[in-house]
């Protein structure tokens, strides 16, 4: 049967080199408003939220919907809109910053450092679990449902092919090509 190539094609951005030390290892804040991923695979400029808050939100996004075959840049893409929204909406900005503060404070109380410094996913998830009914958590989780899974760039990594009408549907492209069922 026809299946999809799910491999990631590496395209390095190159202009940023290293992730900072002392974090969970993948997301860091560098000079001022730039948040970047490991190896400079992605970077974004943050104007309205504290850059550290955005880094924490991206890590939260991965911890809420962890897919080991998805690079951080897709989680960053899912969260980047909150920066502009925070610029337009003071209440949202306050909610996000307070939410990050709460996450960091909980992490500090339990592990002696901010959320990004907590090394094990299960420890970070336990922090999130303790606040999953909060409006802040529900805002982030609910937004991710479309923010992450409605990115056409991630679909192939799940084996989903997206629009098909333009290609004539699946009538000649494997709608009935399953080959492992016993007769």
């Amino acid at each position: 049967m026809r299946t999809l190539d799910k491999r990631t094609k590496v395209t390095r951005r190159g202009f940023l080199k290293t992730a900072g030390a002392g974090t969970a290892g993948i997301i860091a804040v560098v000079n001022g408003g730039i948040v970047m991923g490991a190896g400079g695979a992605w970077a974004m400029e943050v104007k309205h939220l504290r850059p550290g808050s955005m880094a924490t939100l991206v890590q939260m996004a991965r911890d809420i919907y962890p897919h080991d075959h998805l690079a951080d840049k897709y989680y960053a893409q899912a969260m980047i809109g909150y920066d502009a929204s925070a610029g337009d909406d003071a209440d949202l900005k306050a909610m996000l910053e307070a939410g990050v503060d709460f996450v960091d404070a909980t992490a500090s109380a339990r592990h002696g450092g901010g959320y990004l410094s907590v090394a094990w996913e299960e420890d970070r998830v336990a922090i999130l679990k303790s606040m999953e009914d909060s409006p802040f958590f529900q805002k982030i989780r609910g937004g991710l449902v479309t923010g992450l899974y409605n990115q056409p760039e991630v679909w192939a990594k799940f084996g989903y092919e997206g629009a098909s009408a333009e290609q004539g549907g699946y009538i000649s492209r494997g709608f009935d090509d399953i080959d492992w069922l016993e007769a």
Binding site: I64, Y65, P66, H67, V125, E132, Y149, F158, Y160
Partner: peptide
């Protein structure tokens, strides 16, 4: 949310 959910989604195809 969490791995119970995402491990199901990982098997979407």
């Amino acid at each position: 949310w969490g791995r119970s959910f995402t491990s199901a989604m990982d098997m979407y195809d």
